[in-house]
Simulated scan of single mutants.
Amino acid sequence: MKKLKVQDLIAVGIYTAIYFLLMSVCLLILRFVIPGFHNLFIPAVTALFSGVIYLILLHKVPKFGAITIMGTVVGLFFLISGHFPLAFLPNMLCALAADLILYHTKITAQVKIMVSYIVFSFGLMGPILPLWFMKNAYIDSLIARGKDDAYINGVFAHTTTAMFALCAVAVLVGAIAGLFIGSRLYDKHFRTADQ
Rank of each mutant, 00 (worst) to 15 (best):
Ile181Leu: 06
Thr108Cys: 15
Ala97Glu: 07
Leu28Val: 06
Asp194Thr: 08
Leu9Thr: 02
Arg145Pro: 02
Pro35Val: 10
Leu22Tyr: 02
His38Leu: 03
Thr192Arg: 13
Met1Tyr: 10
Leu166Trp: 02
Gln110Tyr: 14
Ile101Trp: 00
Thr161Gln: 08
Leu166Met: 15
Met125Trp: 02
Leu57Val: 07
Leu9Asp: 02
Val33Gln: 13
Arg184Ala: 13
Ala177Glu: 11
Ala144Thr: 15
Phe20Asn: 03
Lys5Tyr: 11
Pro127Val: 08
Leu131Arg: 04
Leu185Gly: 09
Gly65Asn: 03
Leu76Cys: 05
Thr161Arg: 13
Asn39Thr: 15
Cys94Pro: 01
Phe41Trp: 03
His38Ala: 09
Ile42Glu: 01
Pro130Ala: 04
Lys60Tyr: 11
Phe41Tyr: 12
Met134Glu: 09
Lys60Trp: 09
Gly146Gln: 14
Gly51Val: 04
Leu100Gly: 09
Val171Gln: 04
Gly71Arg: 03
Met1Trp: 07
Tyr138Phe: 10
Lys63His: 07
Ile18Arg: 07
Leu22Met: 14
Leu40Glu: 06
Phe78Met: 02
Met70Ser: 05
His83Tyr: 10
Leu124Asp: 01
Ala162Glu: 09
Lys188Asp: 06
Asp149Arg: 12
His38Ile: 11
Ala47Pro: 00
Tyr151Asp: 01
Asp99Ile: 00
Met114Gly: 04
His59Phe: 03
Phe84Cys: 04
Ile152Cys: 06
Ser116Ile: 06
Ile113Val: 15
Val155Gln: 08
Phe133Tyr: 13
Ser24Lys: 15
Asp187Arg: 10
Leu48Asp: 00
Thr105Leu: 00
Thr160Glu: 12
Ser141Thr: 11
Ala175Asn: 09
Ala137Val: 08
Met92Leu: 14
Phe64Leu: 15
Gly75Leu: 05
Tyr103Pro: 01
Ala170Gly: 08
Lys106Glu: 07
Leu102Ser: 00
Leu30Ala: 12
Tyr117Lys: 00
Thr161Gly: 12
Pro62Thr: 14
Ser24Gln: 14
Thr159Pro: 01
Pro35Met: 08
His83Val: 07
Ala47Ser: 10
Phe133Leu: 15
Phe164Tyr: 14
Thr192His: 14
Phe120Val: 04
His59Lys: 14
Ile143Trp: 12
Ile176Ser: 09
Pro127Lys: 01
Ile29Ala: 14
Gly75Thr: 03
Phe156His: 13
